[in-house]
Structures are given as C-alpha cells and as structure tokens.
Design a protein around this nucleic acid. Sequence first.
RNA 1: GCCGGAGUGGCGGAAUUGGUAUACGCGCACGACUCAAAAUCGUGUCUCGCAAGGGAUGAGGGUUCGAGUCCCUCCUCCGGCACCA
Length: 883
Amino acid sequence: MKQYNHRAVERKWQGVWEKKKFYGAADKSKKPKFYGLVEFPYPSGEGLHVGHVRSYTGMDVIARKRRAEGHNVLYPIGWDAFGLPTENYAIKTGQDPRAVTKKNSDNFRRQLKALGLSFDWSREINTSDPNYYRFTQWIFLQFFKRGLAYKAKVPINWCPKDKIGLANEEVVDGKCERCGAAVEPREKEQWMLAITKYADRLAKDLDLVNYPESIKVQQRNWIGRSEGWEIEFKINPTPNPSPKGRGINSPSFGGGEGEVAFGYQTTDPKIWRALQDKTLEMRKNSTEAENVMWQMLRNNSLDCHFRRQHIIGKFIVDFVCLEKKLVIEVDGDIHDYQKEEDRERTEFLEIEGYKVIRFRNEEAVQNISSVKNKIAEILKALSFGEGLGGVIKIFTTRPETIYGATFVAITGKTDRFTGEYAINPANQEKIPIWEAEYVMKDVGTGAIMGVPARDTHDLEFAKKHGLPVKEAPMADQKIWTKIGVKPITTYKLRDWVFSRQRYWGEPIPIIHCAKCGIVPVPEEDLPVKLPKVKNYKPTDNGDSPLANIASWVNVACPRCGDKAKRETDVMPNWAGSSWYYLAYVVHKPKSYDLKAKRLLKKWLPVDWYNGGMEHTTLHLLYSRFWHKVLYDLKLVPGQEPYQKRTAHGFILAADGEKMSKSRGNVVNPDEVIKLYGADTLRLYEMFMGPFGQAVSWQTESIIGVRRFLEKVFRYSEKRKTQNVKQVTPNQKLNSLINETVKKVSADIEAMKFNTAVSQLMICANHFAKAETVVKKDWETFLILLAPFAPHLTEELWATLGHRSSIQLAPWPAYDERQIQAGGVIAVQINGKTRATIGVVEKGAEGRIKELALENPVIKKWLIGKTINKMIYVKGRLINIVVE
RNA sequence: GCCGGAGUGGCGGAAUUGGUAUACGCGCACGACUCAAAAUCGUGUCUCGCAAGGGAUGAGGGUUCGAGUCCCUCCUCCGGCACCA
C-alpha cells in the first residue's frame, strides 16, 4: 500500500495550479461575483505568523466553496509594505528599505504559496511600489482639493534622546519604546485629514453593513457622537481676588498704594530698596540657562511681557509675567541659598495668585524650544476665556438642572481654580470657573456646568473642593429659550493626523512656495517618488530625513516657477491600506486605473472581509472614510466598501502568552508544513477551536488531523482493492452523507470550521469501518473536504479517474428527507432520561408512546405512579410526567 | 466604572438555540497484530458506587414537563473604551 507523501502531493498540485493560473479572477465572466478579502500582511522579517495562516485559510475555505457553487471569485493578496519596523531595521543595518521589503515579501510569498491558498497572484500589490503609491498620492490630492486635507499645529510625541517624533504605538507608558526616555509633547505643523466631517455618516452608515454588533459598537464608541445642549455662560468681566484669601503674608501689595501708582510694583518700597542691589547683582552673575531663557522670553514671541529678577513680596523671582501672573524659575546650583526658601516662596506666590513653574538648567540650555512650548501651553490655559468674547460654552444633557449649577468646570490636568467667575444665565449668580481633571477635552465642548445636587461626579468634585451644593428647582422650556439653550451634536472623533516625519512612507505630494503658498503637485507629475537616501534616520530637529536631500527638496513652484520646496513629511502606514481593496480590482501588471469604473462596479463592494480584532476600529474607520470621499467624487459605487466583516481570534503560544521572538515561543509554519504538510496545518488551524476566539497552539494536537488525513488516504487505497460497483445503497451511510453535506455547508458559512472538520471526521470514521461506500458518496466526501485539504483531495480525486480538477466539481446538495434522526428516541420521566427506544419511523406519535410504556425499565419506574401527561418531541424524546 | 465576550472532563472544545450534556480531537489505560518496537485496529476514559442508583456545565435562587442554553443576585477571567457631563 502507498504511503501518504504530503511533500510530493503538495508540490505536484501547487505546480499544476500555478501553471494553469487556476485561481485567477475573471473580469469578464458572467458568473455571479464573490469578492473575499483578508487583511494583507505587513512583510516583516519574522516571516509568516500562524495567525496569518488561520485568517487566510478561513477565507480560502470560503472562496473555494464559492467557486464550487459557481461564483467568479476574487481572492487577492499583497503587501502592506510601508512602515516603521522596516525603516528601523534599515536604519540599524544600513540597508535600503526597498531591499528589506523585497526580501521579506519574497519570503512571505513563498510561505503563502506553500500553503496552497487560492489567491489570484496576478493581482499582487505592494503599497511601497511607486505605481501603487502614485494613486495613494492622487487620492490625497483629491482630499486636498476638497478641503479635506489641511495643515495644523498639533502636539506630537517627541523623544528628546533619539530626537525624533514618535508614533503613538512607539510610546509605551509615556516613554520611548526603544531608549526609554520620557516622551515630551511638542507642537509641530502636521497634515490633517478632516474625518470629523464624515463622523455622522460613518456612524449612521453602519446600518447598511453586516458587521458583528461588537464591531459596530466599537466604531460608534470611537466616533463618540453625543447629542446634548450648549449653554453660554458669560465670564465675569472684573477678575476676582484669588480664592484662598489674599495677602496673608503680603507686606503691602494688593490694594496698597503702590499698585495704583505703579502697575509693576509688587512689593513694599522699603523691601524693594533693600533687595534691589541684590537683583542687579544676580543679573550680572546670571547663569547660561537664565540667559537663554531671557533671550527667549524678551523677544515677545509668547505675546506676554516678562520681567527679570523681579521682587514680589520679600522674594526675588527669576522671571514674571505680571498680566498673566505667571512666574518662571530656573533652578541651578549657583543660587543655592534660594533653595531653602523655595517652598515658602512658592506657597506665598500661590496664595498671591501666581502660578509658578520651574525648569532645570539643562532643560533651558539644551532644549529651549521645548521649554517655550511648555510655557506657551500654560499661558494658553491661563488666558482661558480671553478671545472667546468673555463667553464659555458648556455642554450638558440636562439643561433643566441649570438652577443647581454652583460652578463651571473646564478641562484641566489637575483640579485648580482659574481665578475667574462665570455668570449663570438663568439666575445671574456668580459661580467659580475651575479646571477639573474629570472634564475631558474630547467630549462635548470640553466644559460643563457643575450641578452637584444632580450629578455624582459634580458632587464628588464639589465636596473635594468645598464648593456649595444646591437643591434647586428645574428650569422649563421658556427659560431655555430665554437664555439661549441650543441643541448641539458633538463627536469624540478627532481629525486624523496624517503626517509622519519619517522616510519609509508615501511622500505627501505638496510643494511650498513663498509666493503661492501651499501648492499641490500636478497630477501628471505623480508619483512623487521617494528618493534614495544615505541615512534613513530622522533629522535632529524632527524633520523627515527627506529634508536633508537638497536635490529632492528644492523644486520650481508648479504655479509661478519660482524656487520652492517639497513637503518632506510622509503619510502614515494607514494610507496605503485605506484603498487597497480597490487596487486589487483596478490592478494591471504595471499600473492602476482608479477611473476604471466598469471594474469597480463589477467587483465592489467587498462581499466578505475577514481580519483581526485589532483592526476593527481604526483601519476599518479610515478606509470607510476614504471610500466615502471617493464615493462623493463619484469614483466608486456604493457608500460602503465592505458588505460583511468578520474577525478571527488570535493564536496564542502553548503557554497562553502572545507569540514573540523574545519569549522564544514562536511557531514557524514552514516547519509544520515540512513535517506534516500544508493540508495538515490548514486543517489543524481550522479545527483547533472556534474561529473567532483566541486559542492556544498545541503542537501535540496536530497529530490528530494528520491521522485523519492518513485515514482518508488509506481508505482511498482500500477502495482500489474493493469491487464497489455492485453496492446497494446503505440507509445509514446515505443519511450520514446527507447530514454531512448539510452540516459542513452551514458551518463553513458561519465560520464554524472546527465543527465542520469534526463532522468530516465522523464521516471518515464511518467510511473506514463500512463494508462498502458508493462512489458518489465517497466523491461527495472528497468535495466537502477539498476546501480544507485541497492538495490531498485533488490527488485522490485524480485516482478516481477524473481528468479535471476537484475544484471544478460542483458543491453537493443534500436531501433533508434522507436524514434520519439517529433512529433512537429518549424516554424521560420528569425530564430525566431513563431509557431509549429504537424506532423505525420518527413520526408516529401513538406508536412511540406505546413502545415507551412497554419498555421494562420504564415500567419499573412507573410502579405506583400516576401519569399526568406525556410530552412528545418529534424524533427526539418522550417525557412522561408523573404526579 | 461602562461596553462586549466567556466560564462545560486531565487538555482544545461540541451541544440542532429550551429537548438524550461531555460530539470530534489530544492525552491516558487495557487488548489485538508483532520476536520486539512504531504504525494501525479494537475497547474504555466526568464523578461517587460492586450494583441498583445518585451527583455534576463558576456559585446561589427562579421560570418550565424539561435549563449548559431563558430571568434575577453574586464570583472569576479575557478583550475594548477608560471620569461620556
């Protein structure tokens, strides 16, 4: 008897499929289309993960079933090739990221082909291919033209040690992932995409698609639409004294004559005279840090007038802005004598209503711009309310509680009284404005009215800070109208920061011209190719490494022809994956045609998109956003890109942990294929547990599916020696095969691959034991197994004498009437099964009752009991209810 | 805290959605074949009990002829959002 040689079988059929371009999707077919999509991999140096295998095999099973059902199937794959790991690896090893990407994707392709996945390889895409990103850039320009791409100052994560801006995922616990330095916020001009303009549609159109409810909930949460009411509170025009009582230790200022006469005098003239010499001396002997700080503060770029070595009370502060009551101190070793006083003086200054911030010498010397940013941020917070016309807009869902408002709270990193007061428009009461940690900037207007009597959070806050609690009457609609309560809808979703100061991404196709401003690169000049660079490291000031290539950066303005500069930021990793499902459709060997409407109309929407749970929020939202913009440009048909979305669960290592190189628990698919074969690996991953759930890898369990395939192989060999021509159909096997067709078909649709495989195993077990199995049933079994184990079934199909592929055999139908209910009925007494009876016909209720009561075991149980009623469940059980 | 999901043998997990709990697979034990081993085949494998029978689906209660499944209270674990005004 022949042995099951998986290597030979798999190599043979993979060769045949490739040669015949077996799995190519036909753009011109009349068959109904099916577009199955899986998340294309990031070609990392680690190679294919067994988690990829799970996802891709799952959709492969579905794609193969669809083909057998007569569909024209598009099941494509490609490489999400731009991204940080490759760039970082390139920096570390001095290689060109293109070379790294080529090497990695070659490896991935080899691995995927070894799995026998039915991808249409002729449509393979690579987001880092200039032909591909030409259209990523083109789409960006459409955003720009519609005003959906704009530049704004945004804080970024700045690593002061590596001197680069970090992506959010590179920041772990507020620290740089690689060097561990504390990450600082830094303002930088960034390209933004106005996704918030689509927030409403992104939320609403979830009704149009078939996604699991959990994913819809996640998307809605992320968008964070909240409907409520906005009320304007006027800010009290005359600032009030600071809250903690004033001037306790204050020698004279605050109401003293000095303040009236000289706005800048903040101390008793006597003290001033005593300390003045000292201030002069300090200015002479100032430290480098102080000098740097002063140069920065005096040039007025912060829109605030600062004084140096100024006397407040009995203390000399380094710098002060009197209008904003902001004191800046630079601590150094030279003025040690001051340190002793530090605590006392800070206390004093705070009581006087000053905010005191301190910087260390090194901070000022090494990074004055970061210091400046921090100061600017604080000034912004201090001047809250100015420039708003003295109005603060609060957000509430319960405007009727306005009479109970005892304070207004705005976003703050810590709880702090701002020193300002607001007027409650309903009763003209003056209530304090606080900064509160619990008020979030992304919700509503970022400001609330505190109603401690009606809201537990407000109450907590009021108690903590000694604010009053009122049991107040409710305000009716008339009052709402009078005070201008207006309904508003707000979103938690922010606009999408689209710039990265990196190398390995799509260059943003924009040119900056001194005369014309921001000018888009003309469409015919696309792609703006990523130039080759010697050093991929970002520059010291946080600009992209592209900024260092003068020959690339300096261009003529496309509008006026004058000297201009290219934008040096690149796009984030999300860009290429936001439209890749379109690229497969409009793909031509060397280019793409996004205007190929006929093709887009033919293939869209994606019928079924499977991917990881980790991408169900951002990637899905981003690509839906892009799709909607393209829809508005009349480029794509339909509002939504993906008709149906499912998510597979993670594969964890045997120890229940995440697979990772550092833990040393990574399973390499190559090794499993070598040892057991691709069919075994596919089948194991389908069988290991529920597809949507996380499961641990158990190497010792693989042997089970391998044994199953061997059993199938042996049975095929056994049939060759049998005379199967004169077989009379066996009732039981006939029922079994019909049931198997039914269950496997339904389970594949529901992605319950594990139970589908289990049913196939049951079927094979029966076949192996049976005297004979009719050829048709055996063929049906092979067709059902083919999506899971395409190589072996193709081989066995051929040994039956078929000239054409098993992949072309139609998916079998089943006959419900042929399925028997196991032929056994349970007899229960008061719901407990006491006996079983075999019946020929499952329908005859009267006969079954008779049989049940005749059963000796049941008779025994019924001695001395009265039967109240009997419940018969067709084909399953009969329940005898006694007393 | 809220939202979503889940708790079933030694292990991965089934259960037609209210109808014979523990399918299928791993592991384990015994047997057959073999000089022997591997492979294969067969039998057994929730638990207490010699048996008759009893008990068991995280814990407790409820609805029902009947509950792993539905309802209430509680506990634990995983995932997401993290003070949602």
